[in-house]
Computed example of a mutant assay.
Amino acid sequence: MKKILISLLLVGYSLLSFSQPFTNEVGIDEHLNDTVPLNLAFINEQNQSVTLGQLINKPTILAFVYFDCPGLCSPLQEGISDLVDKSDLVLGKDYNIITISFNYKDTPEKAIQKKANFTTKIGKDKAPYWYYLTGDSLAIVKILNSVGYKIKVAGVDYIHPSAIIMLSPKGKITRYLYGLTFLPFDLKMSVIEARKGISQPTINRVLQFCYTYEPEGRRYTLEITKLVGVFTLIVIAALFIVLVSRRKKKD
């Protein structure tokens, strides 16, 4: 009986850990210096089974989307395409890109359509090095957990953050870049760091907190309520410090 109870507890813990990315929280808990599970298998846009280890053989950009996304996903992929086009680094020579759908219902057929939409600008010679992957729910949850990517289910859609993650040739997480557009300079620095296996902390995560995406207008808008809330907390903290200081002086 004791062994059965222990087994049930372990199964329950495993199920709980597998469901972690799909919670009421949305965001990213950075896992700098961790390594993604290179043995995870996915299906590429050619309907072939591949492991992450087969694809990550140089600095690699990792991005998460789902193919029916009405909001962030298309602008994010457009931003990546623009980055490839503007950078003096060469996709396929200096780095690779992996886009993974976190919707297990997405298919290779959808993947190849999406890839065609966003690789036209970068040229046929570079397109083979931008991989579009789909997978089963277990593989998806494992990769999301490994990078700290948290998603909230909203009906048939998902609420999710917008970021790209840089991996070293050995799959080590070296940098997170947030937003929908990225600078060629940031890409160059990220590739250099990833090549050496050096991680860098993120300095612009505040942008993800202060702005929210409006799908209709395809733009970020400032969330006044959040800023007011933060400002109010700062003011209250400052007043508290002043009052405590005055009381100490009187004593």
Rank of each mutant, 00 (worst) to 15 (best):
Y178T: 09
K226G: 05
K142L: 12
S162P: 00
L243Q: 15
S74C: 05
D251L: 08
K150C: 04
E109S: 12
K2M: 13
K170A: 02
L72E: 01
D85E: 07
V90C: 04
G135T: 11
K226C: 09
E193Q: 00
T60K: 00
N44L: 08
D82K: 07
Y149Q: 11
D186A: 06
F185P: 00
N117W: 05
I164K: 06
G71A: 04
V230K: 15
F22V: 00
K93P: 02
E45W: 02
R247F: 10
L55D: 02
Y131D: 15
Y66H: 06
I234N: 10
L32R: 07
T212A: 13
D136N: 15
I28K: 09
Y158W: 06
L91M: 07
F182E: 06
K196F: 01
L83F: 09
S162Y: 05
N96S: 14
T181E: 14
T119V: 09
F231Q: 05
K248H: 07
Y13A: 06
P75Y: 05
T212Y: 10
K2L: 14
A41S: 11
A238Y: 15
V11K: 04
T181H: 14
S87R: 09
Y129H: 15
I198V: 02
D88P: 11
V206Y: 13
R205V: 15
L62S: 01
V156I: 15
I61R: 14
Q48S: 14
K152A: 10
Q20L: 10
R218Q: 13
T232S: 10
D251G: 13
G148Y: 01
L91D: 02
C69V: 00
L16D: 11
D106C: 05
K196S: 11
Q20W: 12
T232I: 09
H160C: 02
L167C: 03
Q208C: 15
Q54W: 12
P215Q: 06
N204K: 14
S81D: 04
I159N: 08
K142R: 12
D82N: 01
K126N: 08
V235E: 02
I143C: 01
I112H: 03
I6K: 01
A163M: 06
P201R: 13
K170N: 05
N44S: 05
V90H: 02
I6D: 00
G53M: 00
D85C: 03
I28S: 10
P21T: 11
F185I: 06
V36E: 06
K126F: 09
I98E: 03
G135S: 05
M189C: 02
L187R: 12
N96A: 13
E109V: 14
V36W: 03
K248Y: 04
L40C: 00
Q208S: 14
A163L: 04
A139R: 06
L32G: 02
K86L: 10
K249V: 13
I97M: 10
